[in-house]
Every structure is written in structure tokens, then in C-alpha cells.
Design a protein around this nucleic acid. Structure first.
Length: 397
RNA sequence: GCAAGGGUGGUCGAGCGGUUAAUGGCAUCGGGCUGUAAACCCGACGGAGUAACAUCCUACAUAGGUUCAAAUCCUAUCCCUUGCA
């Protein structure tokens, strides 16, 4: 029995919809997963994520939760689901991205990574095995292998070296993961006697690296698939490389990934990016943009972006996006949101984050709809021309 | 009225004879944010003029003065704060 079950439900070109069953929720793909690094989607209550936005899966982060509150606390409270009260699916990142983003604070070796905690400078050691232990304690439905994410513009040699290690780390991750599943260390384990098709255990995703080097991407894919995982992720994109590189890699690699397993593009991206990646056959996404940009005053709307700080919104009584069905757009004006932002009121960050997430999730809902009706090509065109139209408006102002 | 201390660019506040439209904070304006070290970061911020420089004005309460040179020293005037009457 498998820990997850995923099946294609419709297809248009390389784009596809699917149904992903985990032990905790049913997820329609393509799906956007809000990022909840420290056990919270910053500034947005679970009530809204569940009831209004109907998010079925969110992320959590190994590195951050390991440092604080720590594995012991989370274990003693029964895992991240119970601790946080999020009962739907979770995906935990392995800490691999922090190997990249905290590069000033770490030392890398074959064995693993020594970090200086960004909180207090304490030396911490993270490895594939430790990452798996932490992720078992967190108890997410989807566990990510511990990988190394090279810079977006890494040379062939750097990338090759990093990739080889990532492959070895992937194997070590899997070995340890299996061991932990056997010994019942997963806090999220549930007895699914009613659903015989799932094992109730955690699933493990592999990560394809290779930066902008297509042959290395190919190699990474082959070796990762050889090890064998429940799903496959594309890592190492949107980490400083040219946008064209990302699209080139997606175009090259996404459709080569196993057809019968979900494809997850890590850390991406803008609404445009999501639509493009779906076009290339990607099924899952996560990104901090809706919440980070929301917190910093930038809203995603159907015509592009609204920087709520701009003086031109001071007297606008219309919502962020008049086509958006979210509760923020139903009620609050741009003028009011701008005022809240200017006045440093935390509600500004909350409301714009809320809208952005709603917008991302709604966009994915439309993407799925359009694929089901065989109208994704049309949707994609409209989506892009809406954005282009807005660029024109901005130029014309 | 007497005594003491002050009056600096939108604002608060440094500077107290010699690069310089004048440190810094705030406000304002603009930009950025892609597996979250991020309620953050970057830039602009007297006026005119440039694509951008150049350049030219106007500036440290007001008016005089000393000096090669003044926001900084002197004099007068006007305001403000505190204390004593």
C-alpha cells in the first residue's frame, strides 16, 4: 500500500489535472501550497485557509521548527498537525533550501551541513538522516529529501559536484526515511482502516537539481527516479538565474518526469510562472510570494500587481481586484488598505496576504477548470494578455 | 520686568569659522521581494535645469556687521522655553 495516491483526471497538451489522496486530505492538482514556515502561514489564520480559500495542503519547514520550538516540544505535543491544529495535509521542506539561503552561516561536507543558528549563533548539524528524523517528528504527509540547492547561475562543475552529492543524500534520505517509518517514528501516522488504498504513512519526494544545465537536469532526473520516490520535485529554480533559464529547464525536464507521480516545482512563483509551469506539466507549487509580498504591500491581481504604497491609491474606493471573490476584496477598498499600510497597521499585511493567497488559489482553481474543459490554452492566453494589457496601461500613465 | 537657554531644510534633531544644500531619525515619494535570517531591503527627498551630467538660483528666525571665508563670531530686533518676581 502506498502512502499517497495520485491519478491524472484530465489532460490538455502537457498540462494535466489530477487527484492526490493523502492520509489527511484530498487535493486537486495543479495545486498551490501556501508556505507556513514556522507552523503558521504568516498573517493568515487557518480558519480562512480552510473555510474561505479551501487550501488542502500547506508547507512547514524542518530547519525553522527544529531550531524553535524544537523536535522535543513538537513530539511531546503529538506532531505538527496537533501542535498547530492544521488537520489537512502538510508538506515539510527538508532544510535543503537553507543550505542555499543561509550560505554565509554554514559549512558543507559530504556528511551534512553545519549551520550557525540564525537565532543565536549556536552550531547545529543537519544531515539527510537528521532531516528525516525531524520530519518524522513533524509528521507531514509529504517529506522532502535533504538536498543541496546550488546557485541559479552555478557552473557546470559546481552543479555536477552538488548534484552528485544530492543524489547520495537522496539515497541516504530514503534509507533513513524507511527505517523511521518501520519503527513508527512518524507522529502523523494514522490507522486508515476505512481507506484500504492508503498505508497511512508518510510519503517521500525526491528532488531534481542541475541548475541551468539541461544534461545535468536529465542526469539528476534519471538517478533520482532510479532511487524511486512517491513524487518528484524540481528544485533549484528561481534562485537567482535568468527567468528564461527557468522556462528553458521547465520546458526540457517537466514532461520527462514520471507521468504517474506528482511533479512539484519548488519555490515558484508568480502567477504567470504557475500558469507557464502547468503548461509544461507541473502539478504542485509553493512560494512565499503571496505572503511576503502581501506583508510588504504588494498585491497580485488579475491585471498584474498593485503596490498599495503608491499615492495614486489614496482615494480609490474600489477593491484590490474587482474580479476577486475573496472576503478582503468584497469589503475593503484600496484607499483603506493603503491607509492601513502607511499607518503601519498589522492588518494591512494580514489583509493583503489573505487576498494574495486567495488569488493564487483561485487562479489554480481556474487553471484546473480550464484543463478539465479543454480550454487551458485559451485560459493561458487570456491570462497573459490581461497582464500585458496592464503593462501597457502602466506605460501609458 | 529680570536671569538663563534656545530659534537649522515637511518634522524632530546634529553641526557651533573653512570639503559640501548641511549627519541621523521620522514623514513623504518610488522600486524590489519566487522550497521565508524578510511586518523587510534599496533608492530619492530645497528649487530650476538636463536623457543623465554640467550649470544656475534660494537656504540654517530677521536685519546689519567682523572675516579671504559664517548655520557657526559680534550687534540690534522679533519670537520661544524654563526659573525668579
Amino acid at each position: 500500500m502506498n502512502p499517497i495516491d495520485w491519478k491524472v483526471t484530465a489532460q490538455e497538451g502537457k498540462a494535466r489535472t489530477g487527484i492526490l489522496h493523502t492520509r489527511r486530505s484530498t487535493i486537486e492538482t495543479p495545486v498551490f501550497m501556501p508556505v507556513g514556515t514556522q507552523g503558521t502561514v504568516k498573517g493568515v489564520r487557518y480558519e480562512f485557509l480552510e473555510d474561505e480559500m479551501d487550501a488542502r495542503i500547506i508547507l512547514g519547514n524542518t530547519y525553522h521548527l527544529w531550531l524553535r520550538p524544537g523536535v522535543e516540544v513538537i513530539r511531546s505535543l503529538g506532531g505538527l498537525h496537533k501542535f498547530s491544529t492544521w488537520n489537512r495535509s502538510l508538506l515539510t521542506d527538508s532544510g535543503g533550501f537553507q543550505v542555499f539561503s543561509l550560505s554565509d552561516l554554514r559549512k558543507l561536507s559530504e556528511e551534512g551541513v553545519e549551520f550557525k543558528s540564525h537565532l543565536d549563533g549556536t552550531k547545529m548539524f543537519l544531515s539527510p538522516e537528521i532531516s528525516m528524523e525531524i520530519q518524522a517528528a513533524l509528521g507531514a504527509e509529504i517529506v522532502m529529501v535533504f538536498d543541496e540547492c546550488p546557485k541559479g547561475d552555478a557552473t557546470f562543475e559546481e552543479t555536477k559536484k552538488s548534484l552528485d552529492m544530492t543524489v547520495r543524500w537522496a539515497q541516504r534520505s530514503k534509507n533513513k526515511f524507511n527505517e523511521l517509518q518501520e519503527s513508527g517514528m512518524d507522529t502523523g501516522l494514522i490507522d486508515l482502516f476505512q481507506n484500504e488504498s492508503l498505508s497511512g504513512k508518510q510519503s517521500l519526494f525526491g528532488i531534481i537539481q542541475g541548475a541551468g544545465h539541461l544534461n545535468l537536469r536529465r542526469e539528476s532526473l534519471e538517478k533520482t527516479v532510479e532511487i524511486g520516490f512517491d513524487g518528484y520535485a524540481i528544485g533549484g529554480l528561481s534562485v537567482g538565474e535568468e527567468k528564461s533559464v527557468m522556462y528553458e529547464v521547465l520546458d526540457f525536464i517537466a514532461h520527462q518526469m514520471p507521468e504517474n507521480a506528482p511533479r512539484y516545482l519548488m519555490g515558484v512563483g508568480t502567477p504567470e510562472d504557475l500558469v507557464e509551469a502547468v503548461f509544461h506539466g507541473v502539478d504542485m507549487f509553493d512560494c512565499v510570494m503571496p505572503t511576503r509580498n502581501g506583508r510588504t504591500g504588494s498585491a497580485f491581481v488579475s491585471t498584474g500587481r498593485v503596490n498599495i504604497r503608491n499615492a495614486k491609491f489614496a482615494k480609490q474606493s474600489e477593491p484590490l481586484d474587482s474580479e476577486c471573490p475573496c472576503s478582503v476584496c468584497k469589503r475593503y477598498s484600496r484607499a483603506y488598505l493603503r491607509h492601513l499600510y502607511q499607518a503601519n497597521e498589522m492588518l494591512a499585511a494580514m489583509l493583503i496576504s489573505h487576498h494574495n493567497l486567495a488569488f493564487f488559489l483561485d487562479t489554480m482553481r481556474k487553471v484546473r477548470q480550464s484543463i478539465k474543459f479543454g480550454e487551458f490554452a485559451k485560459f493561458r492566453n487570456n491570462f497573459r494578455s490581461n497582464l500585458k494589457e496592464n503593462e501597457k496601461n502602466i506605460d501609458g500613465e
